[in-house]
Design a protein around this nucleic acid. Structure first.
Length: 607
DNA sequence: GCAAGGTC
């Protein structure tokens, strides 16, 4: 029996080979530089195994010649035009490899990631192998972590490929192409005549809402009207130290009411301590690291663009320093071997000492988040490396410190709250004493510092040194940062962990969005072009405007229904296409308004 | 010449 195993990427092929072969295997090169074929015997199932890989999807989708050219048809026709799927140019040599290997194999065992895209890639691989050998047995190995026991179990008990998941991905792929092509061709043709545009106005179902978020926040900032408020401020200076008290009411927007209360307080300005509460408190250590969290942290703490952080993590992964950097999982497998990885870090001059204390008994299992993609563990260092420089060093350091922090203990402190009453009004102040820093010692990105309050006794009375009616005003929301945008996209299901950063980079490259620095912080502001497009589409009055996340969220939901077999891929495709067609028709009917809004925006092209 | 999703 000869079994051909095909993984989604070379690294997985290598890992499962190492486990299944027990380290005894031979390696053959293929015509694709980075893909190897591994051969070995697997006595457990009395089979000869060949393990290889592809690199993601093998096929790409396009229109037939009749609709390929921009002048071949009205863009609207694209919604109903047939779409063909072909092996993409880059994938030809990978296809040739698995074709050749499949010819002499009895069974194909698919080892792609256990997610929707993995199931679809599996279906692409199966199609190629059946072309080489019509009656090849097709099986799928199911595993949720690269752990010896799981990999052996998957190899010995393969299951069937899940066609429903592959169908869901197929439907989305076709849908995205049609939407992207129809709207891109239409708005480019219509608006290009107007202004001196640099090229095509490319747009797609993820680009629309991503840009929409940036414009919406910009409008919130522009349209913000500050509101005045009033509050009573109380302070006590004792032994040269000032303690500030907060008003329980926070602040009031009605000056007259605030003034009346203030007068009442002034009638008796003796403050009495009603309660002194001292309670233990903790600062929780961080959750295991996902891609989205890495990007947010990278943007906020390291000031690196999300795409840049992911590119660096990718490179460190390829060098064997980090685990796979695209993961939604924020819980470690219970069998995860923490100690071996912690041991590797004990030699580091900066955090080695801390790793040693974890080794010596301070280790505590990481917190468990709510997400598990069943394909990859949280991001962690897989080896120690001491000779990195620049941004690579900073990203590696962040991931490593985060991992060690996860394996450490929460910080422990105690919080003191002092409640006082003055003139019938309640005020309070709090103090914090940090007793054990624990994970904070290795994770300087979190701040938690003691701020003591003087000793107050219950029942104690004092005369405040300050009692004033102060005013202030509400402050505008801040412009969107990249970290904010990643959060919004993640929450609304726009893009995936692997593509969110890409989408952000795309709208910047297309000049719909401009990066604006205020000090060290980078904000995203829409360009005149970006505002013109989004406001134009919004003015048309879609309740499900293309600039809002709703339509994309519905696509995501429909995919889940297809996966659960509550909907066919044809129904999903037809229903979604009908909705986008409707948007398109309204846009075309009212596009004059888009043009009016756009014209003033487009002419002064750059900001 | 259009997208979004994989990964190199």
């Amino acid at each position: 029996m000869r079994v051909l195993c095909v993984a989604e990427k070379p690294s997985i092929a290598k890992s499962i080979t190492g486990i299944l072969s027990g380290g005894r295997f031979t390696t053959r090169n293929t015509r694709t530089n980075f893909i190897k074929n591994y051969d070995f015997d697997y006595p457990q199932t009395n089979a000869h195994f060949t393990v290889t890989a592809v690199a993601g999807h093998l096929t790409s989708h396009s229109f037939h010649d009749t609709h390929q050219s921009w002048n071949s048809c009205d863009p609207f026709e694209l919604f109903d035009a047939p779409v063909k799927s072909e092996i993409s140019k880059d994938a030809k040599t990978m296809e040739a490899n698995i074709l050749a290997e499949a010819r002499t194999a009895d069974m194909l065992m698919i080892w792609t990631d256990c997610d929707r895209e993995g199931e679809h890639i599996g279906s692409e691989i199966a199609r190629v192998c059946r072309k080489a050998k019509r009656n090849i047995i097709v099986k799928r190995a199911r595993f949720s972590a690269i752990i010896a026991q799981q990999i052996h179990n998957a190899a010995q008990h393969p299951v069937e490929l899940d066609q429903a998941q592959a169908d869901a991905v197929e439907a989305r792929t076709v849908l995205d192409l049609k939407i992207g092509a129809a709207f891109t061709r239409y708005q480019t043709k219509t608006l290009k005549a107007l202004a001196n545009l640099p090229g095509e106005l490319k747009i797609g179902p993820c680009q629309f809402p991503t840009l929409g978020f940036v414009v919406a926040r910009y409008n919130d900032v522009q349209g913000f009207i500050a509101e005045a408020f009033w509050y009573i401020y109380l302070a006590l200076t004792r032994n040269g130290e000032e303690t500030k008290f907060n008003w329980r009411r926070g602040h009031l927007f009605d000056m007259d009411v605030a003034a009346v209360i203030y007068q009442q307080v002034l009638s008796d300005v003796t403050a009495r301590v009603t309660k002194v509460t001292k309670k233990p408190t903790k600062k929780w250590k961080p959750l295991p690291l996902t891609t989205v969290e890495l990007q947010k942290a990278g943007s906020r703490l390291l000031r690196l663009a999300p795409k840049k952080v992911l590119d660096i993590a990718e490179k460190l992964y390829q060098q064997g320093f980090l685990s796979y950097p695209r993961t939604e999982t924020d819980q470690f497998d219970p069998q995860f071997d923490f100690m071996t990885l912690i041991n590797k870090q004990t030699v580091d001059p900066a955090w080695g000492q801390f790793a040693t204390t974890l080794q010596g008994g301070e280790f505590t299992p990481p917190r468990r988040g709510k997400n598990n993609d069943k394909a990859h563990p949280p991001i962690h260092p897989t080896a120690h490396v001491g000779n990195l420089a620049g941004d690579e060093k900073r990203v590696y350091e962040f991931v490593t410190r985060r991992f060690l922090a996860c394996c450490s203990k929460d910080a422990v402190g105690s919080q003191t709250t002092i409640d006082v009453v003055c003139g019938g009004e309640e005020f309070f102040t709090t103090g914090l004493i940090v007793h054990e820093r624990n994970y904070l010692d290795v994770y300087p990105y979190d701040k938690w510092v003691s701020h003591a309050v003087p000793d107050f006794a219950e029942g104690e009375e004092f005369r405040p040194s300050v009692c004033e009616l102060k005013d202030g005003e509400t402050s505008p929301p801040s412009l969107l940062t990249e970290a904010d945008l990643v959060t919004l996209m993640d929450k609304n299901g726009i893009g995936t962990d692997a593509t969110i950063a890409q989408h952000i980079e795309t709208i910047v490259q297309r000049e719909y969005v401009i990066e604006r620095f205020e000090g060290q912080v980078k904000y995203l502001v829409p360009s005149t072009l970006g505002i013109g497009l989004i406001e134009g589409y919004n003015q048309i009055g879609f309740d499900k405007s293309l600039s809002k996340p709703q339509l994309r969220r519905e696509t995501e939901r429909a995919m889940v229904q297809v996966c659960e077999r509550n909907k066919t891929k044809h129904d999903m495709l037809n229903q979604a296409i009908e909705q986008y067609k409707e948007m398109y028709i309204i846009a075309r009917r009212d596009f004059g308004r888009v043009i009016t809004v756009s014209q003033s925006r487009f002419l002064p092209y750059s900001i």
